[in-house]
Lab assay of single mutants.
Amino acid sequence: QVALSRTQVCGILREELFQGDAFHQSDTHIFIIMGASGDLAKKKIYPTIWWLFRDGLLPENTFIVGYARSRLTVADIRKQSEPFFKATPEEKLKLEDFFARNSYVAGQYDDAASYQRLNSHMNALHLGSQANRLFYLALPPTVYEAVTKNIHESCMSQIGWNRIIVEKPFGRDLQSSDRLSNHISSLFREDQIYRIDHYLGKEMVQNLMVLRFANRIFGPIWNRDNIACVILTFKEPFGTEGRGGYFDEFGIIRDVMQNHLLQMLCLVAMEKPASTNSDDVRDEKVKVLKCISEVQANNVVLGQYVGNPDGEGEATKGYLDDPTVPRGSTTATFAAVVLYVENERWDGVPFILRCGKALNERKAEVRLQFHDVAGDIFHQQCKRNELVIRVQPNEAVYTKMMTKKPGMFFNPEESELDLTYGNRYKNVKLPDAYERLILDVFCGSQMHFVRSDELREAWRIFTPLLHQIELEKPKPIPYIYGSRGPTEADELMKRVGFQYEGTYKWVNPHKL
């Protein structure tokens, strides 16, 4: 086992960053958080920038500027975001240094004079007029057009580079997404736009490419001749908990499936790229999406959770019991969808996408189930092999396979070949997804960000279904809070070829 401390991990990262040409360590950078008073800024962006600063992973002359409508001070920003920093008493001095680099400007999102004030403020910072500028839009999409237009007109660096990070949702359907994309691309070049999907920053999602293309053993079996089906799962054990009003506007397909799960599907299904260059990788992902037809209604199961009468606390409440959810809402909190990649490698292999709230566990994984062994000599005792990439929690890679049961006879039983990170790298604290992705933006690497043509294809696949749901308002199937979801989803999976045995229990190697 390799035991690495946080300091050692960050030392390795620093070495990698400083050796590259793309990370300008000594240049002045300004990180501007648009929507600095909001939840995302408070819980994710400010803490992430602090962790990067604490670990010495930001360029040395980096300033952080918050911008929002609320009249706040840096002290206010500190008060609301610091509880999420997880700072230790030993880091007190470092924390003071961090907040000394912070400033805040209040202004409207659609007022040109406010942006001119913001620009004057940035120019007044040390070497601010020639600094590289990175704008993070932690804002609702309704203000994107006004904000990007004003940034472009008043706040661009004339000497350094300018980059803009856009948070999902990128529209509600193909038409609104196209409108937003066309607007942003009329102001910024594609190499300046970073559409963030934080799932692409997760260690195991990034590991998929290495697993596939750096190991000879997987190449020959990664196709329709050997793989019976692919299941991509995202499960949350909690409901909307008072935030249903926002969720109800989008629903589970827009929230998770059309982005996170579809991105994971691309990494499983794509061909080997010409290189690890950002556009070479994204070219292959677009090719996969172009091979997927629009979702067919007979390959869809929609569910909505109801309270568990035997549960406790939140578990007793259904989705419609959330006071922020519109009365009688038919918005799905669970969806199972089957897609097919219609190309030579994957023809006929079902890709089953499942996601839901208020389920029995927290889990995100990719599961490849292989065909049955031909010419069975073990009297149907063999179960199908599976390769599982567990994204969260407890990152893991393992192969479910058959071995001989101890004893006199040739009785096979299920076991696993474990390729888990935790076994080799004991207690290594890896940077989280937002840390990686923000560092990628500083480096100018777009590999783990969504390109406009990729986004367009993703919406093309799901828009007809979303429009049909909005028009017909089908009643989702009720499922109990804390269950596996509607049984109809299991029946759909069985119908397209997935075999669920229920006889195997994964042993978490992190707890051995």
Rank of each mutant, 00 (worst) to 15 (best):
R254K: 06
D255R: 04
H260F: 02
H260D: 03
L261P: 02
L261M: 10
L261G: 06
C266K: 03
C266V: 07
C266A: 09
L267N: 05
V268L: 12
A269M: 04
M270W: 02
E271T: 05
E271Y: 05
K272R: 12
K272G: 07
P273C: 04
S275I: 05
S275G: 07
N277W: 10
N277S: 15
D279N: 14
D279C: 09
D280M: 10
E284C: 12
K285E: 00
K285V: 03
K285S: 03
V288E: 01
L289C: 10
C291K: 13
I292N: 04
I292M: 12
I292W: 00
S293C: 09
S293I: 05
E294G: 12
V295N: 08
V295R: 11
Q296K: 15
Q296W: 10
N298L: 10
N299C: 11
V300S: 09
L302K: 04
G303K: 01
Q304A: 06
Q304Y: 06
Y305A: 05
Y305Q: 01
G307V: 05
G307A: 14
N308K: 14
P309F: 09
P309N: 14
D310F: 13
E312S: 12
G313P: 09
E314K: 09
A315E: 14
K317P: 09
L320W: 07
D321C: 08
T324N: 08
T324M: 10
P326L: 06
G328L: 13
S329E: 05
T330P: 11
T330W: 09
T330A: 14
A332I: 02
A332V: 05
F334Y: 11
V337L: 11
V338I: 11
V338S: 11
Y340L: 10
Y340F: 13
V341M: 09
N343R: 05
E344P: 10
W346T: 01
G348K: 11
V349K: 00
F351Y: 03
I352N: 00
L353H: 03
C355R: 00
G356L: 04
K357R: 02
A358S: 09
N360L: 04
N360P: 06
E361M: 06
R362M: 05
A364N: 03
A364T: 15
A364K: 05
E365V: 04
V366C: 12
L368D: 02
F370E: 01
H371D: 08
H371V: 08
D372A: 08
V373E: 12
V373N: 08
A374K: 10
A374P: 13
G375A: 11
D376K: 09
H379C: 11
Q380N: 14
Q380F: 08
N385S: 04
N385I: 03
E386Q: 05
L387A: 07
L387F: 08
L387Y: 06
V388T: 08
V388I: 11
I389Y: 06
I389H: 04
V391W: 03
Q392P: 01
Q392S: 09
P393C: 07
P393G: 11
E395S: 11
A396I: 02
V397N: 02
Y398F: 05
Y398E: 01
K400T: 04
K400V: 06
M401I: 12
M402L: 12
M402P: 03
M402T: 12
T403D: 03
K405P: 07
P406C: 14
P406A: 10
G407V: 06
E416W: 04
E416N: 04
L417A: 04
L417E: 07
D418G: 11
T420E: 13
Y421A: 00
G422I: 13
R424N: 05
K426T: 12
N427R: 06
V428A: 14
V428T: 08
K429S: 14
L430F: 09
P431R: 06
P431W: 05
Y434N: 05
Y434H: 08
R436L: 05
R436M: 01
R436H: 06
I438N: 00
I438A: 06
L439R: 13
F442W: 08
C443A: 12
C443L: 10
S445M: 10
H448G: 07
F449M: 05
V450T: 09
R451L: 02
E454L: 06
L455G: 06
L455K: 03
L455Q: 03
R456A: 14
R460V: 06
L465K: 04
L466Q: 05
L466P: 02
L466E: 04
H467D: 11
H467R: 15
I469V: 13
L471V: 15
E472A: 15
E472W: 10
P474G: 11
K475I: 12
I477H: 13
I477D: 12
I477T: 13
Y479F: 05
I480K: 14
Y481H: 10
R484M: 00
G485Y: 02
P486A: 03
E488V: 08
E488T: 08
A489S: 13
D490K: 07
E491R: 13
L492A: 06
L492C: 07
M493T: 12
M493L: 12
M493K: 10
K494H: 13
K494V: 11
G497L: 02
E501H: 13
E501C: 11
G502Q: 10
K505W: 10
